[in-house]
Design a protein around this nucleic acid. Structure first.
Lengths: 99, 99, 99, 99
DNA sequence: GTGGTCTAGACCACT
DNA sequence: GTGGTCTAGACCACA
């Protein structure tokens, strides 16, 4: 799934891997992601690499983090992809979570 | 008052908040502090975070804890310097607790 | 070595265990301690319990922590008394860390 | 369910109440009990009273406690009541949990 | 891959 | 009903 010899940066590959799981619905909105440490072991890469991938997905609005609790799949992106525009309220709600 | 998005750790912010209350005299020597669980609810953080703040103030001699009773404002170094001598008993009591 | 049914808090037992290693010279000044997560596994207790033990030893000046690197044995008061003067630089370094 | 005006001590009433839940299978072996604080609120009694009740059930082998985790329904008593004697292995297993 | 911070609880010891 | 200890994790900042 992840090719360490690929010219594509590993964090991009992981980023794409997670984005796919969300798009395919294998990771549902509100659901907790595997922890950074789990991904770190699974892909045999450093936690920094995992964090790079996750941080991009957070910035893109796919995920949000809650310190001490975990990383979660956001509502917005999923609905945007599915339904086009989200309502103002939903948007604000998602942003609130992202804090 | 407390900014969860600040790079300053929450427990440091709370520590500073309580230290200020003492300095401004809103918390008087001998007075009982709100309980850890009350602060926990007030600031919407976990009790361990509150304990980190209070523990630092205990180590600095601003507060002392009494098991089963609560957390109290100590006879501070500041007041000792300002008001001269405290009574021997009070002094020993404060020192004992300050440990 | 650690008795979970003892009335002595586990963190105190671990604190004493590490202090002994230092006193007996099995942990030499400057040496890196096993990581908190290693101790956590070794003693089958949560990391927070290990941290309580280590934090006390840090406050007492036996150990110092370096973010991202590890926990190290300090140039102890004991050795300072025994060996006379340490170099100015080493001394300042130890004091800085001991804070 | 609990009668504060009864001559039967409140902790005995609570003890009996929980024992019944176990006997009726509403609390299954391995299951977590509601926390001391929850019971304390539910019955409007102090936590000491709850602890008295639970401690008796622990001593009788109906429950076991895991610090930091919770109080759980034991296997033994249930099986003893149902099947008479438990096997040596099961007994040891239950004792192991009780640690 | 370490230490730092934090969560959302739990049971324990004590007043 | 307080503070004390502890769990089983999580994410964060750094080297």
């Amino acid at each position: 799934m992840i090719d360490k010899n690929s010219p594509v940066p590993i964090y991009s590959q992981i980023e794409e891997y997670i984005r796919d799981l969300i798009r395919k619905g294998e990771l549902q909105p509100g659901q907790t992601l595997p922890s950074e440490r789990e991904y770190s072991e699974q892909f045999q890469v450093s936690r920094m690499t995992i964090r790079q991938a996750i941080t991009k997905l957070v910035n893109e609005g796919y995920l949000y983090r809650k310190k001490g609790s975990g990383t979660f799949v956001a509502e917005t992106k999923f609905e945007q992809a599915l339904q086009g525009l989200t309502s103002f309220t939903e948007d604000m709600k998602a942003r609130a979570y992202a804090k």
